[in-house]
Amino acid sequence: MNCKRLLAVLMLLCSPLTQAQPPEELRISVGDWPPYLSAELKHGGVIAHLISDLFADEGYRVNFQFLPWPRAYAAAAAGRFDASAVWMHKSEREADFLFSAPLLNEQFVFFHLKSQPFDWHSFSDLDGMRLGGGLEYSYGEAFDSFLSKGTVKMERVSSDRQNFEKLLKERVALYPQELNVGYASLRKHFSAADAARITHHPKPLLNNLSYLMLPKQLAGSQALLERFNRRLQSYRDSGRYDSYFRDLQAGKYEIPQAAPDAKLPLFE
């Protein structure tokens, strides 16, 4: 190859047209919901990690913005974000958003003290018991209807920490909460000794599906949704989807504190 031809090849290789372009950025609004979504967790939490990897495999880079939940919804609905995560399906939300395939299966269970064995098959098995609960919180239509009958008393407070404190002091017998959310709270707010006193019943009180929502305001949402759903299904088919939640249960998304207490496994 003569010198002129070699120079031409080198110039072509160095041309901006041949250089790799940075991935397109997607902006996604999210709320704080540890251990699934939180700026205080590695990768922003397991769901943020999963979404980032799904879109990375489609050639996108994700920028998450943590906002109060109402603002996260409103800003995305107005088209100021490419998507918002994660949300339960409600028919009224379909006016603003397209829903992805299910991204997260939330499982609500009853937490209780190991020293007070507990079993249940139907809501009537709870009659006469005192429960903890969240302020203005719904545990599903069926259980809300049962609570309205007044055969059990639910004492509602504003935080998981307060509810678990009441459970440890035996002021309530049960506390219904999402499985991973409950154990994340125990690990964050309580000593290993106190956390070890609490377990959960394996029968779910409620299973909820949550979704990524893409705004109908944006013309590209439908095509982006289809790509996301195909990639999500491939993760499920390969078993990769489950690996994220095994890492969650192993505590791999937690950022060690300066002087951490001894930690328990999330599940027994």
Rank of each mutant, 00 (worst) to 15 (best):
H49K: 09
A83Q: 05
N180A: 13
A101Y: 08
G140C: 04
Y244R: 08
W69M: 08
I47E: 15
P265E: 00
K169Q: 13
K149Y: 07
L98G: 08
S148E: 08
C14R: 12
D32S: 11
L174Y: 04
A85R: 05
L50R: 13
L248Q: 07
G239Q: 01
K149Q: 08
V30F: 05
E94C: 03
L50V: 03
D261H: 07
D53W: 04
A142F: 02
S52Q: 12
Q257Y: 06
G239D: 00
H189Y: 09
D82C: 02
P256S: 03
L218M: 11
C3M: 11
D96N: 15
Q217L: 07
S145A: 13
N207T: 14
Y244E: 02
N105H: 13
L12D: 02
R27D: 00
S210I: 00
S158Q: 11
Q19H: 14
Y235D: 09
G132Y: 05
P34W: 00
Q222R: 13
S234H: 12
E165T: 10
S84Q: 05
Y183P: 03
K252L: 12
H89D: 06
D194G: 02
R171P: 05
E136C: 04
D125P: 10
R5L: 14
E178H: 06
L135P: 04
Y244F: 14
R130A: 02
V30N: 03
A196W: 06
Q233W: 00
M129Y: 04
S243G: 05
A48G: 10
R61H: 06
F267P: 08
P35C: 01
K90W: 12
S52T: 03
I47W: 14
E141D: 11
R246N: 11
N207E: 14
S100H: 06
G182H: 04
S238N: 03
R236N: 00
D119M: 07
H112F: 03
T151H: 14
L214P: 11
M129R: 14
A48D: 10
E136D: 07
D119T: 13
Q107T: 14
L98N: 10
K203H: 06
P176Q: 03
P265M: 01
S185Q: 02
Q217F: 04
F108K: 03
Y137M: 06
R27A: 02
P215G: 09
L179C: 06
A48H: 09
G182C: 08
L167R: 05
F245S: 09
H89P: 11
Y183L: 10
H189N: 09
P215Q: 06
P16W: 11
G220P: 09
L12Y: 08
Q162R: 10
P176W: 02
K169I: 01
Q65N: 10
H201N: 15
F111S: 10
